[in-house]
């Protein structure tokens, strides 16, 4: 633990927690405008969170401790994961922070406990959501691992911090293979954040429900924590893509101006990406559950292709 890392912990995590809800509303706004609606206020997600914080928590008598600890655990796991993805500057982190395998498994913790939470109250919806989430996440896992392995192949390191230091050093993406990986990473964002065509975050209809089904029993501040954790996950995954594809402006040294520029650049780039996600969601229909594995195969193909290109180059 050094001063640089402590500063990074405060700034990076604070910044991510602060801006995450913004992108949630932004995507809703983009989707609304493509549908010809006005859409919510850009700060709506913050208002929602504040409102939920004030409401009382209601538990089903059938639920157990799992329901009670999961909201806290999920947000804590994502706070830890946020240390792995530098947005404001790249610190001198202790060994192991930034390891992409640990990062993947931190996301797995969140998934594991959310799925248990879905089963906890004994509602049919929750069970359905858990079953679908675990099945689909199992099928997407090879894609995620191969995409991250492709990153490791191209950039010759398994640490995000080192990867971003390499990409941030250059003004354009280092190799065309990174662009290919970006396609897979984009699909991974869509899948992991439960967006169309995988899941529909806007409905509570059992045909489409995955994520929404599992948190149906959550209420009050617990729901707020889960929503925030979800937003943080989206921001972190977006940051991974941004730092690979368009790493301009990421500070490698700590200066006040550098930090400000990093934050500003990130806001602009992430807003653009959120816009793209919104447009993507609007332009495609929800897929049938059992059609999804072939959608995942596409992402798998791009990342496997990247590695093959590197292998035979």
């Amino acid at each position: 633990m050094n001063a640089s890392f402590l500063l990074f912990t405060l700034l990076n995590t604070g910044f991510i927690l602060l801006v995450s809800p913004l992108f949630m509303s932004l995507i809703k706004k983009v989707k609304a405008s493509t549908q010809g609606r006005k859409g919510p206020n850009l700060l709506q997600s913050y208002f929602d969170l504040r409102k939920l914080m004030k409401k009382e928590v209601i538990y089903s008598p059938n639920s157990s401790g799992i329901m009670r600890i999961t909201p806290y655990l999920n947000l804590a796991v994502l706070i830890l994961a946020s240390l792995f993805v530098p947005i404001v500057f790249i610190p001198e982190a202790p060994a192991g922070i930034g390891n992409i395998i640990v990062f993947l498994y931190l996301l797995a913790i969140e998934r594991f406990f959310t799925a248990l939470c879905g089963l906890d109250a004994g509602s049919t919806f929750g069970g359905m959501g858990s079953s679908r989430l675990m099945s689909l996440s199992a099928v997407i896992e090879p894609t995620m691992v191969i995409a991250f392995a492709a990153l490791a192949y191209v950039l010759k390191t398994v640490n995000f911090h080192e990867m971003f230091a390499i990409t941030a050093g250059s003004t354009i993406p280092k190799s065309p293979t990174l662009t290919l990986i970006s396609i897979s990473l984009f699909i991974i964002i869509i899948v992991e954040t439960g967006r169309i065509p995988v899941d529909n975050p806007a409905t509570h209809l059992e045909l489409t429900m995955i994520n929404e089904a599992m948190i149906l029993e959550q209420s009050g501040k617990n729901l707020a924590l889960i929503e925030l954790a979800h937003a943080v996950k989206q921001t972190i995954l977006m940051a991974v893509l941004i730092n690979i594809l368009a790493p301009w402006g990421l500070a490698t040294k700590v200066t006040f101006a550098g930090l400000a520029v990093s934050c500003l650049y990130f806001l602009v780039k992430a807003s653009l990406l959120a816009g793209v996600i919104g447009l993507f969601e609007s332009s495609i229909a929800k897929m049938r559950l059992f059609r999804l594995p072939s959608f995942y195969m596409m992402a798998f193909f791009f990342s496997a292709l990247t590695i093959l290109m590197e292998v035979f180059a």
């Binding site: 799992i66 906890d120 675990m134 996440s137 199992a138 090879p142 691992v145 093959l308």
Partner: peptide, 28 residues
């Protein structure tokens, strides 16, 4: 690469398996 992707699938399926085992046995 092939064995890696199968290995990844294995570990994700194991997570699904134990969500099922713990969830169905102890919860609800």
């Amino acid at each position: 690469i092939i064995t890696l992707s199968v290995f990844a699938l294995t570990s994700a399926l194991a997570a699904a398996l134990f969500v099922k085992l713990f969830g169905i046995t102890f919860l609800a």
